[in-house]
Amino acid sequence: MTDISMSDHAVTGKTAPPAEARSMRLPTQWLGVAPFFIFAIMFLILPTLYLMLGAFQNEAGEFTFENIAALAQPSIIAAYWISIKVSLASSLIGAFAGLAIAIAIVRGGLPEWIRSATLTFSGVASNFAGVPLAFAFLATLGRLGLATVILNTLFGLNIYAHGFNILSFWGLTLTYVYFQIPLMVVIIVPAIDGLKKEWGEAAATLGATMAQYWRMVVIPVIWPSFLGTVILLFANAFGAIATAYALTGSSLNIVPILLYAQIRGDVLHNAHLGYAIAFGMIFITGLANVFYIWFRTRSERWLK
């Protein structure tokens, strides 16, 4: 192994171009990454900035806080609130359920095929979102859905009579969880694989109980990946619209649906209010990320 890395250095040394050659080559180097940066600036960063700035301008292009202040009307606040609730609930349920499944398949002593089958299925289900997912849940928990009918005929439990509605907060949350759990599984399994078996054995020989080992080692080690994934799940749910729109039409007024209606028909009769709504969405997902980065740099000094 040593001789390979030595020959590596030798090769690098020999091919390092002389000074003039390097300055000649500089433009070509940037040429390779230029399409990426041009694309990112034109179609990702500028459009976003355009909306951000528009949120602080009035029709005449002057700076103002009016649009942001206008977000404080009850219907918009309600929309943000229900969005935050659905996103938070679905990301937390998805995260804990996904973590439990990941631990079960990695550390639970289940047969190997269960692990690979679960990972494959998670890859599929985490991408099975949008309109078709809404159809699947309507067929399951809608008024005529299979689960609804079976619960009613076999157990005499009419979930709709008990206040459940697929077009409600819990209906939407339960549907979102269908892609949130597998996403958590896909992301967190490598982190759990990274927990070395020897750590548990070392802790055991040092007299630690299972609970102590989890509290002092496992949870602190997994925590950063876990929290990062929760943030990702939150953003994932917060921006999602297709599932909710196909499921509930516009009966459940979450923020993306409100924005969608605004873009289609300018229902709020003020384009700049639309910008402000978009700004609010990015502000919330951005805030979640800033919190995550702040937390991680503060508490995880042991991470390289």
Partner: peptide
């Protein structure tokens, strides 16, 4: 960034820009 900025916001930006 595309995981943080919702698709609806990106396309809204396109429509305006």
């Amino acid at each position: 960034l595309p995981l943080v900025i919702p698709a609806i916001v990106i396309v809204f930006g396109y429509i305006r820009m």
